[in-house]
């Protein structure tokens, strides 16, 4: 056939077909997405510091293991309150002259998704220690350590942040371990990662592939409460550790703790919902319960797990008691 023997016609046709399809499936949808989406009304752009932190997030290739996308499937529910939508990314523009836009959606979840990490784990002390040596807080973690983001000094200067590292991970370091500006920026970026609320009255997209509601709870469990151990693992363990002993100088133990074992349930629930910072020798605790939208059932399950584990042996509490306190907290904090 003449067509097949003419190199100009043949290669032009192939190129034309490819470019045409490229326009349809890549360029046009990309331009459409770019033009027809805007950030949500209450979207907060990154602060100067968080922006610098994002740059080191990019430079260190964190996206190789951490996604930033909540898919509209049920299994992704733990990573955010709602599925991600195009508007979530609309505010992200080209990084600079040399570097492309970084939506950092990622394709691998070797480590957890970070879409909402600023709500799930905002603790500065935890994040710094975790960066310095992830295995100091999460024993089974395989994340790289980033000791080069920290300096060793003899004295902690003004405005400097010291990281309290357990002895097992200090290895021949005598001075104080101080977070560099880059480490602080990176943590500022991590803290800034929160899902933006949809404008009032707008229903979020549904999660697909919902699990069938199966009758939960083993026989005789207290009133069909959710799995307290799992909730503890997901919400509390990274600081208070699996053995409930915390980390010396950073996170207090729950094992044998007077608050956990005592009768002041109101204080206990308050700490879980709103955070706690009366003891200078430990890091500030953030509002874990509020940040993660824990329900009274979940809080009860966590409390009961903590009161009966690691040798702790206190009376279990009921959902009703916890719910009453939580309702009161809601009223007082709303103002």
């Amino acid at each position: 056939m003449e067509f097949f023997d003419n190199h100009k016609k043949l290669f032009r046709t192939a190129l034309g077909l490819f470019v045409g399809l490229t326009l349809i499936v890549a360029i046009r949808p990309a331009i459409n997405n770019q033009n027809n989406n805007a950030p949500l009304p209450n979207y907060e752009p990154l602060s100067e510091q968080a922006y610098l932190g994002k740059k080191s997030f990019i430079a260190n290739g964190c996206v190789a293991c951490h996604t930033q996308q909540v898919r509209n499937v049920d299994m992704d529910k733990i990573w955010g309150n709602r599925p991600g939508i195009a508007a979530d990314y609309a505010g992200i523009t080209r990084t600079d002259f040399w570097r492309n836009t970084a939506t950092l959606m990622g394709t691998e979840r070797t480590g957890p998704d970070l879409t909402n990490i600023g709500a799930r784990q905002p603790s500065m002390a935890w994040n710094l220690l975790h960066l310095y040596q992830p295995r100091a807080v999460v024993g089974k973690s395989i994340m790289p350590a980033y000791p080069w983001l920290f300096q060793i000094k003899n004295k902690v200067g003004k405005d400097e942040v010291e990281v309290v590292v357990p002895d097992a991970y200090r290895k021949g370091i005598n001075g104080k371990i101080i977070a560099s500006q880059e480490a602080l920026n990176l943590v500022a970026y991590i803290q800034s990662l929160k899902q933006t609320q949809l404008p009032n009255g707008k229903a979020p997209m549904e999660f697909l592939y919902k699990k069938k509601e199966s009758p939960t709870g083993k026989k005789g469990s207290t009133l069909n409460l959710p799995d307290g151990k799992l909730l503890y693992t997901n919400n509390c363990m990274s600081c208070h550790q699996a053995n409930g002993e915390g980390l010396k100088g950073a996170f207090p133990p729950l094992k044998g703790s007077p608050i956990v074992l005592g009768d002041n349930l109101e204080l206990y629930v308050n700490i879980i919902m709103l955070g706690y910072d009366p003891r200078p020798e430990y890091a500030t605790m953030n509002a874990v319960g509020t940040d993660n939208n824990l329900t009274p059932e979940e809080v009860t399950a966590i409390i009961n797990h903590e009161r009966t584990s690691w040798g702790n042996n206190a009376k279990k509490v009921t959902t009703e008691e916890v719910k009453k306190i939580m309702d009161f907290i809601k009223i007082t904090t709303k103002k």
């Binding site: 990309a30 989406n37 195009a86 992200i92 080209r94 492309n100 836009t101």
Partner: peptide, 10 residues
């Protein structure tokens, strides 16, 4: 065509 999700499509 790389702003926002444009980057992801590409």
């Amino acid at each position: 065509w790389q702003t926002g999700l444009g980057e992801t499509v590409v």
